[in-house]
C-alpha cells in the first residue's frame, strides 16, 4: 500500500461520524421501537418481539397497500422514463432552443412538493378544477379524476410524473451530451434507421445513466406521500392507499409508533430486495453481468 492511502480513512470521518450520530441513531431507535407495543399516548411500552411484524404480515391491508404501491410506483416511473427519455432526445435534436426548453420543462421539479400537490388539486378537483371547468364549458362530461378508484390511481401517477419527469429528462439529456457523436454519424452514413440507431447505439451507451435514474426514482417513489395525501388522502376507499400512506395513518394518526416502525422496516427490506433484483437484471441484460 502506498503511503498516502493510509490517511484515507480520515476522509470518512466527517460524513460517517455525522451519519452515525444524526441518522443511524434515530434509525436504530426506530428499529428498536418496532419490537414494542408502543402507543405514543402512554408511557408504557411492552416488548412484544416480532409481534408487530407478525401482525402486519398477516394483514390483508398491508398487502393491498403494497400492491397499490407497486402499481403506482411502476406506473409512474415507467411513464416518467418514457416521457423523460423522449424529451431528452427531442432536446438533443434541437441545438439552439434546447436551453430555453430545458429550463421551462424543469420548472415543475423545482416546485415545493406540498405546493405542487395544491397546484395539481386546483387542476383536478371536480367541477371547479381547471380541467373540469374547461370541459364543462364545452359540455363534455368529465371523468371523476380523484373520485373513481381507477382515475384516482391514474391522477396520482400523472401527478408524480409531472414532478419527476423533468429530473429524468435532465439526467438523460446530460448523458446524451456526453455521447460520442461519431458513432451516430457512422451509423447514419451506413443508412441505419433512427430506431436502429436509438436501439443499438444510443441506449447501450446510456445504460449507466438509465440505471441511475430508474434506481433513484424507484427508491423515492416508494416514499411518495405529499401529493397523494393532498390529492386523495388515500381514497376513494383504499384505492390509492400506498404503503407510506398506511405508515402515516399508523404513526401519525393512530400514534401506534411501534407498529408504524415495523412497517417502515418491512418497506425497507422489500424495496431493497426489489431494487437489487432490478439492478441485477438491467446489468445482466445490457452488459452480460460484467459489474
Amino acid at each position: 500500500m502506498v503511503r498516502w492511502q493510509r490517511g484515507l480513512w480520515l476522509f470518512f470521518l466527517p460524513s460517517f461520524g455525522l451519519l452515525a450520530v444524526v441518522l443511524l441513531w434515530p434509525l436504530g431507535y426506530a428499529i428498536y421501537l418496532s419490537f414494542f407495543d408502543y402507543y405514543l399516548g402512554s408511557d408504557a411500552r411492552t416488548f412484544i418481539g416480532l409481534g408487530n411484524y407478525a401482525d402486519l404480515l398477516s394483514e390483508t391491508r398491508l398487502w393491498r397497500s403494497m400492491w397499490t404501491t407497486m402499481l403506482i410506483a411502476f406506473g409512474s416511473v415507467g411513464l416518467e422514463f418514457v416521457v423523460g427519455f423522449a424529451l431528452a432526445l427531442a432536446l438533443y435534436r434541437l441545438h439552439r432552443s434546447a436551453k430555453v426548453f430545458s429550463v421551462l420543462l424543469f420548472l415543475p421539479h423545482i416546485v415545493t412538493p406540498v405546493v405542487a400537490a395544491l397546484f395539481l388539486k386546483w387542476m383536478l378537483a371536480s367541477n371547479w378544477g381547471f380541467i373540469d371547468a374547461t370541459l364543462l364549458t364545452f359540455n363534455i362530461e368529465p371523468q371523476d379524476w380523484l373520485g373513481s378508484p381507477f382515475w384516482a390511481k391514474v391522477s396520482v401517477i400523472l401527478a408524480d410524473a409531472w414532478v419527476f419527469t423533468p429530473l429524468i429528462m435532465m439526467v438523460l439529456y446530460a448523458a446524451l451530451q456526453g455521447l460520442d457523436t461519431s458513432l451516430i454519424e457512422a451509423a447514419q452514413i451506413d443508412g441505419a434507421s433512427n430506431w436502429r440507431i436509438l436501439r443499438h447505439v444510443i441506449i447501450p451507451s446510456l445504460i449507466p445513466a438509465i440505471i441511475f435514474t430508474i434506481s433513484v426514482r424507484l427508491m423515492d417513489v416508494f416514499r411518495f406521500f405529499d401529493i397523494i395525501y393532498v390529492l386523495t388522502g388515500g381514497g376513494p376507499g383504499t384505492a390509492t392507499e400506498t404503503i407510506t400512506m398506511y405508515t402515516y395513518q399508523l404513526g401519525f394518526r393512530m400514534l401506534e409508533v411501534g407498529k408504524a416502525s415495523a412497517l417502515g422496516v418491512i418497506t425497507l427490506v422489500l424495496v431493497a430486495a426489489l431494487l437489487l433484483a432490478i439492478n441485477r437484471t438491467l446489468n445482466k441484460t445490457y452488459r452480460g453481468g460484467d459489474r
Binding site: L19, L23, L24, W25, P26, L27, Y29, A30, L40, M219, F222, R223, F225, T244, T247, Y248, G251, F252, V257, A260, S261, G264, V265, T267, L268, V271, A272
Partner: peptide, 12 residues
Amino acid sequence: IRMFPHMLLAIP
C-alpha cells in the same frame, strides 16, 4: 438507509 420512510425519523 435512504429508503427508510422519512416520517418515521421525525419522532426520533
